[in-house]
């Protein structure tokens, strides 16, 4: 794993990727700090991070698009398969390298509240709690980006899907106001999601029975619950959309609450997408 980590770091700093990622993050957070903390003279640094998290929509896919897609395009994934290291070690090595690239600009950003505290009253616990949450949320988005990169050998496509997925997550709370709140609407949408899940499972495992039987059982179970008590489904779809939002949970930290459930949620998202990335890479052996 250490070998992969060192190798990935070398590749990021050989190319412009790490520098572009860091520059964009610093520029956007710097712009926010200028607008909020300097021009508007607001002492809350967490508002800057709340403004700055929008940049993740662009910079996370740029950072993660090549991580596995490029291995496939260059056929170097064959080397990784033939080396005496496990797929889990490969994915963890790559992911930790991405986290280190992300941590470098974040380390600079974490100096801002201290600098501002020299010139006014800054409530440091909220500022640093938000920086920690900003890091974990970014780590969750990076895990999502790694998984998307593992689905294709086309970097551009990986970046496009990544931007769409993160943008959808960013606006999921706003969009939830426009979706159906009726019980039947929620059931129909969840059935569509079950079918999409089946397609993903089939793609990752090449096991049609597991995919179709799994989603079939899920749809039958949901329909059964709906027939038993349809009120359980009322407003369920917008509720799920709001709950899945990574950004919405971050705003709780910005409001001064260190929400441990959000931390657990972010860590679960990280573990889930890294697990899927390992499965996606393993799938190549079975093709």
């Amino acid at each position: 794993m250490i070998a992969v980590l060192k190798h990935e770091l070398r590749l990021y700093f050989h190319s412009l990727t790490a520098y572009v990622f860091g520059a964009f993050l610093l520029a956007f957070v710097g712009l926010g700090a200028m607008l909020y903390n300097i021009q508007a003279a607001v002492s809350n640094f967490e508002f800057v991070l709340s403004f700055g998290c929008l940049i993740f929509v662009v910079i996370v896919p740029i950072l993660t698009m090549r991580v596995i897609a490029e291995e496939r395009r260059q056929k170097t994934d064959q080397l990784l398969c033939a080396l005496p290291i496990t797929t889990t070690e490969v994915i963890l090595g790559k992911y930790l390298a991405l986290l280190l690239v992300y941590l470098i600009p974040l380390a600079l950003i974490s100096l801002y509240p201290l600098i501002f505290s020299q010139y006014g009253e800054v409530y440091l616990p909220t500022a640093y709690g938000s920086i920690l949450a900003f890091f974990i949320m970014g780590a969750a988005l990076i895990a999502l980006g790694v998984f998307i990169s593992s689905l294709t050998e086309n970097q551009g496509l990986a970046a496009g899907i990544g931007i769409a997925a993160i943008l959808l997550n960013y606006y999921s709370v706003s969009l939830s106001e426009y979706v159906s709140t009726t019980a039947f609407g929620s059931l129909a949408a969840l059935c569509v999601l079950a079918v999409l899940l089946a397609v993903l499972v089939k793609y990752l495992t090449k096991n049609e029975n597991l995919a179709y039987i799994g989603s079939g059982v899920l749809i039958v179970a949901m329909t059964g619950v709906y027939m038993y008590d349809s009120t359980l489904f009322e407003g369920l779809l917008p509720d799920i959309m709001a709950k899945l939002s990574l950004f919405e949970r971050f705003y709780v930290f910005v409001n001064g609450v260190f929400d441990m459930t959000a931390v657990v949620y972010y860590l679960t998202v990280i573990a889930f997408f890294l697990f899927l990335s390992v499965q996606s890479l393993e799938k190549r052996r079975y093709n």
């Binding site: 070998a3 992969v4 190798h7 070398r10 590749l11 260059q74 994934d77 080397l79 290291i85």
Partner: peptide, 18 residues
């Protein structure tokens, strides 16, 4: 299976460590 942006020395160091 070569990483085009690396030198042979860097590449061999990675493979050796792995």
């Amino acid at each position: 299976p070569l990483y085009m942006s690396e030198t042979p020395l860097e590449y061999l160091r990675f493979v050796g460590e792995a």
